Lab assay of single mutants.
Amino acid sequence: MPSETPQAEVGPTGCPHRSGPHSAKGSLEKGSPEDKEAKEPLWIRPDAPSRCTWQLGRPASESPHHHTAPAKSPKILPDILKKIGDTPMVRINKIGKKFGLKCELLAKCEFFNAGGSVKDRISLRMIEDAERDGTLKPGDTIIEPTSGNTGIGLALAAAVRGYRCIIVMPEKMSSEKVDVLRALGAEIVRTPTNARFDSPESHVGVAWRLKNEIPNSHILDQYRNASNPLAHYDTTADEILQQCDGKLDMLVASVGTGGTITGIARKLKEKCPGCRIIGVDPEGSILAEPEELNQTEQTTYEVEGIGYDFIPTVLDRTVVDKWFKSNDEEAFTFARMLIAQEGLLCGGSAGSTVAVAVKAAQELQEGQRCVVILPDSVRNYMTKFLSDRWMLQKGFLKEEDLTEKKPWWWHLRVQELGLSAPLTVLPTITCGHTIEILREKGFDQAPVVDEAGVILGMVTLGNMLSSLLAGKVQPSDQVGKVIYKQFKQIRLTDTLGRLSHILEMDHFALVV
C-alpha cells in the first residue's frame, strides 16, 4: 500500500459497493488471473465517493441489488447463522422517566444476534452475496479491517462455511474481542490505534497488504460494500417497522461504517417519512454534520465500534436529520445504567446512543415513540467499562463513588512517597548505550525526554532486548525507535489509591 493515498477510480455505471474482489474501477472485475494482476490496485480507499443510485421515491424494481426479506425461524435451526436477525424490541421503562421523557422509549437489542452484535447481519450478508456472485469459493481466505464486531461476525460465518479468516484490528480494541476471535479460529493482526486510516500501518493498510500477498484472499470491505446497508434496509428496518406496527417518530443510532443508519433510515424514509433520524458520533470522530460539531482538541476516545477519521463510502449522511456528539463518560455511564436499571447487557456504544436519545427525544410528546439501536453486548468489555477499576483509572468514576473498604494508605498523596527525580535518556542515544546505562543503574525503564525536557515516551529494558533479539533494531539504532509513546501519567497530588489502580493494569506510571 502506498504512503500517498491515490484516488480510487470510478467506473461508468453500476453501484460502487459490489461485493467481491475490487477492480481499479471499484466494481467486480472478471477475466484471467493475468488481467486481474495487471488491473487490481494495491488498495482502494474506504472513503471513495459513493456511486449508489438510491433515491427517495425511486421504484424498488430499479435497484441493481439482490434483495432479501426477513424469514421466520424454524423450530430447529440448521446452523447458528440462522440465529442472525429477528432481534427483540424491548421497552426501556426507567431511564426515559428518569430523564423526563414523555414518549415511549424502545430498544432494538442487536446483541441477541448469534455473534453478539449488529455486525453479524452485514457479515453474513457480505459472505452470502460474495458466494452468490462467485467471488468467494471453498478454501478462500477472508481478510477484514475491523474494530472487532464485524470480525467476530465474519469469523463466526467463516467457521460454519469453512473459510480461512484473518482479522486486522487496532490495538485499542478489547482483549475479549481478541479472545472470541481466536476461539472462532480467526487469525488476528493488531495495528497502532493512532495510525491514520490511509497510513500503511493502519488496520485498513495492513489488511490490503495481506490481501496482495495471500492468494485467493478477499477483503469484503464493510466500508464500501453495498451488502452492509442492504442488510439493514432489507431486514433490520423491516423488523423495526413490523415490531412497531409502522408507528415510530424517531430513530437514534450510533454511527461507525454508517451501514446501520443508512440502511434503516432509507427504508424508514420510504415507509415512515415523518420519522426523524438521529445520528450519534463520538467526540474525536469526524462523521457528524455540520462540520463545526467535529471541532475539538480530542483525537482519541475509548468507546469502541463507532466514529472514524474518514467518511466511509457506505455512509449516506443525507438521510440523517440531526447529529449529536457523545463523550466517553456519558457513554459508559449510560451503558452501566442500562445494565443495572433495565437488565440490558449492552456495550458502550449503546450507552452513547441512549445518552443522546434522552436529549433528542425531549421534543417528542406522549403517545409518540423513539427507537434506539443497541449494537453489541457487554461480553466484549468485561475488563473495560464493566470494571470499576478501569473506570477509575480512566477518570470516568471517582473514588467516592465506590463504597468498598480501602487499605490505610489509600488516600495518601503520591508526594508522600518522597520520590527522587528519575533517570532520563535522550532519544538520540543508541539502544546499546541505553541498555548499558539501565543495567549500570539497576533500572528496568526510563523516560525519554528531548533537550527541552519534554517527555516523549518510555523505554524499557525488556522491550529493547526483545527488539534486538527479533532483529527489529540494532544496538547502533537510536533509542527513539523503541519508545512507548502511550503511558499513564500521575500527579504528586493524586492518591496512592489512584496509582494502585493504574499499576494493576500497566507496568509503570510516570509522575509529573
Rank of each mutant, 00 (worst) to 15 (best):
N225E: 06
D47C: 02
D129P: 02
C244T: 02
H203K: 07
N212Y: 02
N225P: 06
G139Y: 08
V255K: 02
V160D: 02
T236V: 02
S3F: 14
G153S: 12
K247M: 12
C165Y: 06
K25C: 13
C275H: 04
M173T: 09
Q222Y: 02
E34V: 08
Q243D: 14
E62K: 14
A231W: 04
S73H: 14
G263V: 04
I76T: 02
R266Y: 07
E187C: 10
Y223M: 07
K83P: 08
L81W: 02
A231M: 09
Q243C: 07
V206W: 06
K72L: 14
I76P: 10
R51S: 12
R209L: 08
R125C: 09
C109V: 15
A69R: 15
S175E: 10
N212H: 02
I76L: 13
K177V: 05
Y233N: 06
S32V: 08
G258T: 04
T260Q: 12
L210G: 08
P2V: 09
N225M: 02
L105Y: 02
D120F: 13
S73V: 11
I92R: 02
R91T: 15
I122T: 04
T236M: 10
Y223L: 04
K177T: 02
L248E: 02
D129A: 15
A71G: 12
I214K: 02
I264G: 04
K94T: 13
P170S: 08
P138E: 08
I143D: 10
C272Q: 02
S73I: 15
L181K: 05
D221A: 04
G20L: 11
A38V: 14
A231C: 15
S61E: 14
K137N: 15
I264A: 02
S227M: 07
G263R: 02
V118A: 12
A155G: 08
K102C: 09
A186G: 06
T13L: 09
C275V: 14
T235D: 07
A186C: 02
W54L: 07
L220Y: 02
I95R: 07
A155L: 06
E128R: 02
V180R: 04
K271D: 02
H66C: 12
G148R: 02
A195Q: 10
T235E: 11
Q243V: 09
I80D: 04
P21W: 11
F111S: 02
R125V: 04
R121T: 15
T235R: 04
S3G: 12
C103L: 06
S227L: 02
I167S: 12
P49S: 10
A60G: 02
S63G: 02
S32E: 11
L210K: 08
K267M: 12
F197I: 08
I261T: 13
R121P: 07
I80G: 08
E110T: 04
I214F: 09
K247Q: 13
I219Y: 09
S254L: 02
P170I: 02
P74R: 15
D234S: 08
G14R: 08
Q7M: 02
R121W: 02
I143V: 02
W208G: 05
K94I: 05
I143L: 07
G31D: 13
T135C: 02
A114Q: 11
D179I: 02
L156F: 06
E40M: 02
C165P: 02
N93E: 05
P138L: 12
S27I: 15
A159G: 05
R266A: 07
C244V: 14
H22P: 02
N113I: 02
G263E: 06
P46D: 06
K25F: 08
R224F: 05
P170C: 05
T236R: 02
